[in-house]
Design a protein around this nucleic acid. Structure first.
Lengths: 352, 352
DNA sequence: GTATTTTGTGCAAACGTTTGTATTTTTGTA
DNA sequence: TACAAAAATACAAACGTTTGCACAAAATAC
């Protein structure tokens, strides 16, 4: 590798300080140093102080790899999200780090890109890296769950969040999608809209199923009938939202409001309505879901449901830590959502 | 730990398959298995096939920890960004993963949150985790660089991107901030604005310094003088942009356009202008930087400079791999930027 | 046919910890 | 002072790889 010594000398990596170095320096043995650093009471308080001081002096840094190898468990938590550049997910990540970092755990993040194969690979990658636990939000494609089971079989803790599979035995943290959707729909009703449609994502994902459930509940509770022709279950992108609204307004029987299960779809709906010169909110109401940053910046500002992503992240991390500490903790937690009323839906009390 | 055996049985982790298991099973030795799995030609093609088949059959997964420990270098790359939930950074991350993942490297992401202390801690965390390399974009606070030097001294490859320190000896990938800013300012001039101000971030960061340089070049080239009272070097947030524009328009001598070094500041400027009922772009021109997703959604749509974040990420990853493979590679690469003209600045050829 | 090279494996040490057990030192008690 | 108990430390094995070196068997050369 290194043909000539004098080349190596300058390139050579600075040798890391190990516990053996400290031990030799202090004239004690490595095991004592190890225990001292761990704060084990079996080593005298005097030696502990000595070791700590010397470690600092020599610039010792634990070799996490060696430690994990010996202990059989690493302080790394793996996290799989569909996309890191989604406002919601990046904020969940921040929330997780908020709790995890101070405890010394480190987070290994992987993206599934909404692809099942990539999700599988991500799980295997995390397992190969001996993560101590896995946090996951399923991709839209995911329909089979052996990869998840593989992780569980390994005995490593699993926490699902947002896009979960209820049948998998693990801790779960979800948004209160039901209530959010319920309130959003109720709000549209209160605002005087009668023919309310719903654009959402695949109902095989619990998040979307719950939003549909909330929508349906609000409708039936107010004696309104759902027109299934106003319901699209594959409309979560801007483009899909646009296509759906254009499509649905072609019919004789038209809706006068749409509750979208995502802000991007709502954005597409607004695009379509503007194109058709339909007045918002006078003639048509729109509500989104997620409170994406753009939702308060567009015109009209978009009524939407806020999910507390950061809070969710913190709860996820806490659930993970609980599991890592050996406490069972297979509970399902729910993070509350909040309706934010803006211009795209509120016609004032007048209509009420 | 486990007081009662029959409790352990069900909780017990499934034992991992090691190369020793494969070796025993095949009646050969672990070193041969190791070599076979690595595709070493010193083991016969026959044995290699046997080992590979058996490994697959037994569901072998390499213990990355042990491997890294022995090899003294891990296949993990650490990446430190100011904030993960910024459109630009999350896209750079995606770009890095695009290149890194297929090669088997894994990415450990840490956030500095624009805090110097957190950045230092992040570096130490990555070093403790024996990352094979570090990719970093400096926080705005960072003024001292011992932590970076610490990493370099360890001999691990470093790649800086976007917010770099030119004095640190490492590979660097930056945006063509100069040209972007130059074109943006030129465009404003072409659009007929004469008194063009500049709202930017701390000029100690090269990215902002370069944008200033581009702005200055365009101005002087067109024979326009920079009024330093129209230049704010601490205005990168929406709020700061708002305050700055309100402030600057109080004076007798007013600008008629602002080139902002960030879209958020530009957003604040638009807020202020709208509040003061100043017509955009007729009376006042605004250009941002970054092409944040919201910039094409707001009213008026914002002229801005696009940075190719994903491309940048891929280049960063390639530079890292080059370094990991032992090739020196301390070059500085520049990713081109592109002006996107929208409604906030273009008064048409009429004015020209 | 022997000598030499090539090819394929095995052996054992090493990476830096952790941890059960053994050993030494200290302390307390009779 | 002797002797047990307690406290502090040392010893050594283990975690799962990788890799230099040794060795045997096969292939080639003379």
């Amino acid at each position: 590798m290194c043909k000539r010594l004098y080349f190596c000398i300058q390139i050579k990596k600075m040798k890391r300080i190990t516990i053996n170095d400290i031990a030799n320096n202090l004239g004690i043995t490595a095991s004592t140093v190890s225990r001292a650093l761990a704060g084990n009471t079996r080593v005298s308080i005097k030696t502990r102080g000595l070791v700590l001081a010397k470690a600092k002096e020599m610039g010792y840094q634990q070799n996490v790899l060696a430690s994990s190898l010996r202990k059989g468990t690493s302080g790394t938590i793996g996290m799989i999200v569909p996309r890191i550049n989604r406002h919601f997910f990046s904020n969940v990540i921040s929330g997780v780090e908020e709790i995890l970092n101070p405890t010394g755990y480190t987070l290994l993040i992987a993206q599934s890109g909404e692809s099942f194969t990539k999700e599988q690979k991500a799980v295997d990658m995390l397992l190969a890296n001996h993560v101590g636990g896995i946090i996951i939000s399923l991709s839209v494609q995911t329909q089979s769950y052996e990869h998840i089971q593989r992780a569980i079989d390994r005995g490593i803790p699993l926490v699902q969040f947002d896009r979960i599979n209820p049948d998998i035995d693990s801790a779960k943290v979800i948004n209160d999608n039901f209530t959010g959707a319920y309130l959003a729909t109720k709000h549209l009703i209160k605002s005087g809209y009668k023919e309310i449609g719903h654009f959402t994502g695949t109902l095989s994902l619990n998040a979307y199923a719950e939003r549909y459930r909330g929508y349906a509940k609000a409708m039936s509770e107010s004696g309104l009938k759902i027109n299934e022709r106003f319901v699209y279950a594959d409309a979560i992108t801007r483009e899909a939202g646009y296509n759906a609204i254009v499509n649905v307004l072609k019919e004789d029987n038209k809706p006068d409001a749409i509750f979208c299960a995502g802000d991007y779809a709502a954005l597409g709906v607004l695009d379509g309505l503007k194109e058709m010169a339909i007045k918002i909110p006078d003639e048509f109401g729109v509500v989104g879901f997620a409170n994406e940053p753009f939702s308060e910046l567009i015109h009209p500002t978009l009524t939407t449901v806020e999910q507390n992503a950061f809070e969710m992240g913190m709860r996820v991390a806490k659930a993970m830590i609980k599991n890592l500490e050996g406490k069972p903790g297979r509970e399902q937690e729910t993070i509350s959502t909040r309706l934010i009323v803006r211009d795209s839906s509120w016609r004032g009390d007048s209509v009420k």
